[in-house]
Simulated assay, not measured.
Amino acid sequence: MSPKQADTGSILIVDDIEENLIAFEAVLSPLHQNLVRARSGEQALKEMLRQDFAVVLLDVRMPGMDGFETAANIKRLDQTKHVPIILVTGTESTADYAYRGYAIGAADFIAKPIDPWVLRTKVNVFLDLHRKNRLLAMCAVAEDADRLTDIIERLTQIELLLRDRPETETAELADRVAEMERAVGTLLPGRTGIE
């Protein structure tokens, strides 16, 4: 993944009303992120399994699987449980909504009618966290690759020292070191372990 890829994040917008989806897209388009629509909880879950999302905007009141049930299902899946969910509620929402939402793992709430500035600000916070988490993951992979490369170099030095010794037992040990080196080499990106 390149640093450019770490800068982008998809946003899943879930609402059963077309006008609401259009309004969300209009408000969020200045963020220049990939906006994905879902018109039901079931469709949202399918989208969550197809790609990674930085944040989900999820309407609470939908026919069939409502926002609470959808959020609970998102949080149950290993590959989606860490995706932040902003629940979108109507003006009739109660304190019970907040309790239920936070109990299932929602990260935030926003009430209709939506204040565009508040929505963009909240979503931008989660996009920023997503970018930072992806960059940290890229750094961890690079650091692991550096460590593995160092291990391979040390194993190679040990193998060369052992191969230079005339004893039969050291040849067997050198073969084991070479085998370990190949195994560690397969863990490095772009290496097969066979040279």
Rank of each mutant, 00 (worst) to 15 (best):
Ala54Leu: 13
Glu69Met: 08
Glu69Asn: 06
Trp117Val: 15
Val14Ala: 01
Ala23Met: 10
Asp96Tyr: 10
Met65His: 05
Leu77His: 11
Ala26Gln: 09
Met48Pro: 09
Ala106Lys: 09
Thr80Asn: 14
Pro30His: 05
Ile11His: 13
Lys112Phe: 10
Asp59Leu: 03
Leu77Asp: 04
Val27Cys: 09
Lys75Val: 02
Trp117Ala: 11
Ile86Arg: 11
Arg39Cys: 00
Gly105His: 08
Thr94Val: 05
Val56Ile: 04
Phe109Gln: 06
Gln33Thr: 08
Ala107Gln: 15
Val123Pro: 04
Gly41Thr: 00
Gln79Tyr: 11
Gln51Tyr: 10
Arg76Thr: 09
Asn73Ala: 09
Ala106Ser: 13
Gly101Val: 02
Ile104Leu: 14
Gln43Asn: 04
Phe126Asp: 06
Arg76Asn: 14
Phe126Tyr: 15
Ile110Trp: 13
Asp96Cys: 06
Phe24Arg: 02
Ala140Val: 12
Ala137Ile: 02
Ala140Arg: 12
Gly105Ser: 07
Val27Phe: 15
Ile110His: 12
Phe109Lys: 04
Gly67Ile: 05
Thr91Arg: 14
Pro84Thr: 02
Trp117Thr: 15
Leu119Asp: 14
Met65Arg: 08
Ala38Leu: 02
Ile74Ala: 08
Met48Ile: 02
Leu77Glu: 07
Leu31Asp: 02
Leu45Trp: 02
Asp59Gly: 03
Asn20Ile: 01
Arg100Asn: 06
Val125Lys: 10
Gln79Asn: 12
Ala26Trp: 07
Arg37Leu: 01
Ala26Leu: 11
Val141Pro: 01
Glu18Arg: 10
Val118Tyr: 11
Lys112Tyr: 11
Leu35Ala: 05
Lys132Val: 13
Asp96Ile: 06
Asn73Trp: 03
Ile11Lys: 14
Ala38Phe: 00
Leu119Val: 11
Pro63Ser: 00
Val55Met: 13
Arg76Phe: 10
Ser40Pro: 08
Phe68Lys: 04
Val118Ile: 12
His32Ile: 12
Ala72Lys: 15
Ile11Gln: 14
Asn34Trp: 04
Ser93Val: 00
Phe68Gln: 04
Leu87Glu: 01
Leu119Ala: 12
